[in-house]
Nucleic acid binder design. Structure first.
Lengths: 346, 346
DNA sequence: TTGTACGCGTTATCAA
DNA sequence: TTGATAACGCGTACAA
């Protein structure tokens, strides 16, 4: 077992000083060709690589990005991570991932673990519990210590930092407009409780589209799903709520749902109730994941371009890290959505 | 902006030595109650936290695990990561994620980046390209440098290390036996090319189940999907291959597919060809992801318990790290599969 | 009770 | 051309 070699060991072995070795490996002109070759050959033989930790300590830079997300078993978030990885790796950065699991405490603990020197900056999406409690002190403290943060998707106006968001409002509006243009007269909305701001914006987009066409929003057509558990979708209760929605409003001929699960479940329930898709009811979801693509019929969805969001977030963060201006000029980048049409609409 | 405080700054401020501060913060009896309180109060005020990097350098331990996987936008792998995170965080470890994107080069580069001091050990699943080339030198080099590795799912017998695998053979066998018991007479297999060993084992399980029941495996019922791109499923060509399979063998009344996508696609094609599921054809897949759960009809699958695999891998790795025996006694842990029955079988 | 000195691995500056 | 020294931040054995 050949443990990792250090400069010191090479120096001892070759009977020169540590700094000579260091310089020789950097091809410094100060060192004679002779020793340079000798050192480099030896280093190559023993596969010398500088120790990242020592470099981090010296440079006060870790070349590592911390990512905190609520959940990783989730198509959107994993796409974002892929985007972050892609961009960060290209720039020579590593990515450390922490999961908040939608919990405030875990979010704080994870950030604490990483904020003490392990990383150069954060990319994060806020947990539901944090949004609910509206306690954002940990973000501000981190920023105050000179550690830049970029938020994505679930962002919050109370914090001053770079942000990358989807145009939830516009994405939803375009989707609902599509349904209206497709002759839907009674369009239901299946959304989250209002404290999840992306859900709120999408709800507003829905209403705005209706108003655009002088359609009066009907409160009874709006279902705000009660997901008390925060993390796991309770399928049975979701199905029941949607069933009640359809049974109570048989005139529904279009559905806009703020995520894939809601949309897929709506399709399932509709068909159980004897409705054909898209003939009787047209459905559009949000988030272009595997479910939408492989559903039968294929689900028309608003794609968020998760990977692009990740890349952009990484770009903003690395920009700040490398230029060391941490305090002003914050931007909010909007990544456009795209309506991907499949068979659940006409 | 209050930059992070160090021991040195506290010492200077309070006009004591650095080591006094250090000891005081550790509640050492050596230090007088007086100074202890003074120091602790000051530290608390300025929110002192020891610098992880400095600790890592000193202790030669980073308390960080490196995870290299081929792809993160993938239900199974993200579940494994969740399991790793869960266990690792509990033990005070962080998780750094690298994506090989199924490429040999990226796998090597990513490991190189992390192996130089950034982490204490690896958990990884081998990329398809690496499996194809059968070049495993980077794993051995890493191990030889005293860095422990735990492999999961896509493992390889050539490397001596701890492994966590699914019993692909048994899982497949049980699935196919189920089909046979359900009166299927002509069971097709949709699998990968043989160099993906999990596909190979599942194929063997399929054959073994047939033989158990004295059924002669029919080569024309076995489809080895040609996924040249390695990373992205080419849906159209997949659909065509499956269509040819069904058209060429109308007697097929059961399908076992080695992953979700193959299974879902098989269901889709079967129905396009006018077959009812499960009445005309019963289908079982492998990997219990969102697709299986939300498909209509729900897909019966062999669940791999990804999260448990991740937890176990983390446990094995941390065990080695903390006990510093890196060279022998390697174990291969088999995580049992479970057949989850839904509506695609009778 | 407090402080000094050293080492973790590296690089940069300055001295020889 | 080479080497010694300091510094990054911390903890600890040992000296005062």
């Amino acid at each position: 077992m050949n443990k990792k070699v250090t400069l010191k060991q090479i120096a001892r072995e070759l009977d020169v000083s540590i700094s000579t070795v260091s310089k020789a490996l950097k091809n410094s002109k100060e060192i004679s060709e002779d020793t340079r070759e000798k050192v480099q050959a030896f280093a190559k033989l023993y596969n010398y690589k500088p120790n990242n930790i020592a470099l981090s300590l010296k440079n006060r830079k870790t070349k590592t990005i911390g990512v905190i997300i609520p959940e990783i078993v989730h198509h959107f978030f994993s796409k974002v991570i892929r985007g972050i990885e892609l961009y960060a790796n290209n720039k020579g950065y590593n990515v450390i991932v922490g999961l908040s699991n939608e919990s405030f405490d875990k979010e704080v603990i994870n950030m604490d673990m990483l904020a003490n020197g392990s990383i150069d900056g954060f990319i994060l999406s806020i947990s539901k519990e944090t949004l609910l409690q509206q306690d954002y002190h940990h973000f501000n403290e981190t920023i105050n210590q000179g550690m830049p943060i970029v938020m994505f998707d679930r962002v919050v106006k109370e914090i001053n930092c770079d942000k990358v968001v989807v145009d939830d409002f516009k994405g939803a509006k375009i989707a609902v407009e599509k349904l209206i243009e497709n002759k839907c007269k009674n369009i239901a909305l299946i959304t989250t409780k209002d404290y999840v701001n992306v859900g709120r914006y999408r709800t507003q987009g829905y209403i705005s589209a209706l108003e655009e066409y002088n359609i009066m929003p009907q409160p009874n057509l709006i279902l705000k799903v009660d997901d008390e558990s925060l993390t796991e979708y309770n399928l049975v209760s979701l199905e029941n709520e949607i069933k009640d929605l359809f049974m109570g409003n048989p005139e529904i001929d279009g559905v806009f749902a703020v995520n894939e699960i809601y949309a897929i479940t709506a399709m399932k329930i509709a068909r159980k109730l004897g409705k054909e898709i898209p003939d009787d009811i047209q459905v559009i979801g949000f988030t272009d994941g595997v479910l939408s693509k492989h559903a039968i019929p294929g689900l028309t969805t608003v794609s968020q371009h998760g990977q692009r969001i990740g890349e952009k977030a990484a770009e903003l963060l690395i920009e700040r890290i490398e230029n060391e201006y941490f305090t002003d000029n914050f931007q909010t980048v909007v990544v456009e959505t795209e309506l991907i049409e499949r068979e659940s609409t006409k």
